[in-house]
Computed example of a mutant assay.
Amino acid sequence: MKLGTLIFKNTYMNFSEMLGVIPPIFLLLGLFDVWVPRETIIRYMGEKSGITGIFLSILLGSAAAGPLYGAFPVAAIMMKKGAGFSNILIFLGAWSTMKIPQVLFEMSSLGTAFAITRWAVDLVGIIVMAVIIEKLISPEERSEIYRKHIEENI
């Protein structure tokens, strides 16, 4: 009986946490979708955006708040708006490992050298992995991923 009660308490707490995070994310996504033109995303974060797209992806991911499951709807909107595949991967990687509050906590509890070293390793690792993944996936496969995403969300 105690195990069942514990399971229900944990489920309730997790569900409550999600209800506190998901609505604000979807509200911001709706505003992002309406206010930011597709051409702007293509120019600054598209396939040919270069270092600018990488920088913006890292900035958006590291400045974000909320758990990782909040990053996927944002990535979906980025995909819809024409962001480059590697920039979406970099954004997801930055959201998961490079958040500014996390780095500040690490600086205060584990030391500045550790926090900066981990952040730098993550930065390089995320960019390298995104480039490798983009090279491993053919342009046709990437086009198919974008096409399926758009079809499923119409």
Results as ranks from 00 to 15, higher is better:
residue 116 I to P: 01
residue 69 Y to T: 08
residue 92 L to E: 03
residue 1 M to R: 05
residue 20 G to M: 11
residue 2 K to H: 15
residue 44 Y to N: 14
residue 139 P to C: 05
residue 137 I to H: 03
residue 83 A to R: 01
residue 118 R to H: 10
residue 29 L to C: 12
residue 28 L to S: 06
residue 109 S to Y: 11
residue 95 W to F: 11
residue 34 V to S: 07
residue 15 F to I: 15
residue 49 S to F: 00
residue 133 I to N: 04
residue 35 W to H: 04
residue 139 P to F: 10
residue 85 F to D: 05
residue 134 E to R: 13
residue 93 G to P: 02
residue 152 E to G: 15
residue 129 M to C: 14
residue 45 M to I: 06
residue 69 Y to C: 03
residue 118 R to N: 06
residue 148 K to Q: 11
residue 101 P to W: 01
residue 130 A to Y: 06
residue 25 I to R: 11
residue 121 V to P: 04
residue 51 I to D: 08
residue 131 V to D: 06
residue 109 S to P: 00
residue 9 K to Q: 13
residue 92 L to V: 08
residue 25 I to K: 09
residue 142 R to E: 08
residue 108 S to T: 14
residue 77 I to D: 03
residue 76 A to D: 10
residue 20 G to H: 09
residue 121 V to C: 09
residue 75 A to F: 07
residue 150 I to H: 13
residue 3 L to C: 05
residue 149 H to S: 15
residue 90 I to P: 01
residue 23 P to L: 09
residue 70 G to S: 07
residue 113 A to E: 09
residue 147 R to N: 12
residue 68 L to I: 13
residue 75 A to T: 10
residue 70 G to K: 08
residue 40 T to D: 01
residue 20 G to T: 07
residue 68 L to T: 14
residue 141 E to A: 12
residue 96 S to D: 03
residue 148 K to D: 03
residue 79 M to Q: 08
residue 26 F to Q: 04
residue 132 I to Y: 04
